[in-house]
Design a protein around this nucleic acid. Structure first.
Lengths: 112, 112
DNA sequence: TGGCTTGATCGGCAATCGACGATAGCCGAT
DNA sequence: ATCGGCTATCGTCGATTGCCGATCAAGCCA
């Protein structure tokens, strides 16, 4: 049994999905996943975006909790929060499983 | 090499996620999943939004392919495309699994 | 037929987003 | 101390989004 409630609210889940729903941010996540070297300049070089834009995307990902940035002065080190990514995947999967199931399972009418 | 692509491009996946990344649209999807009666007025009654706003959200969901609307004149019938939902869930899960895994095992797709 | 109900579309408005350049702060190297 | 590289933040601009009321098109029923 799930010891907690079913899932986050629509607002919470939607805001986390919003953080993902941008091609540049998906690419940034993929870059962070590929190499743990994680500083910003490397990402800027691999994307056709200005440095300030990439920094802004990193801020959004950090605010969503998907990325942790240790700003060690000049060279900040960004690390993917893999646990948070997995948790988001689980929440999302739970929602879509409930939606995608052929029958709306049981009478647990979920009022939103 | 042919496009042995594992998943859709960042743009494609991001645009589909964008369709989901709104609390009202998540609620609409849940309402469609709960009851297959699927006409618009019922959804409007369960949301604090104007009818035109709900219609707009339905249009976005339809454009994303998650909902099919058979506009049979006056009373249109909206149905959840459960196969599309499952496909999106699979694509998303594949992406997040690749990101959330501790080691990026394959690692050959380094786009510059 | 006329009127009613239902939903899609239009036009407008405010808010937010996404991008950029410019600037400021921090650190190591010279 | 000064220089130069790196990054975060600020301000701004155009584009998009979200919401609404109003209006229009299409069926249904008396």
């Amino acid at each position: 049994m799930a010891t907690h409630n079913r899932g986050p609210s629509s607002e919470t889940l939607a805001s986390r999905l919003r953080a993902l729903a941008h091609p540049a941010r998906l690419k940034i996540l993929a870059a962070l996943a590929a190499s743990d070297t994680c500083h910003c300049g490397e990402i800027v070089q691999n994307l056709p975006l200005a440095q300030s834009t990439v920094s802004e995307h990193l801020r959004i990902l950090r605010a969503a909790g998907l990325v942790r940035g240790e700003t060690a002065g000049a060279r900040s080190c960004y690390c993917l929060d893999r646990a948070a990514v997995r948790k988001l995947a689980a929440d999302f999967d739970r929602l879509l499983a409930a939606i995608g199931r052929h029958e709306s399972a049981g009478g647990k009418a979920r009022r939103a």
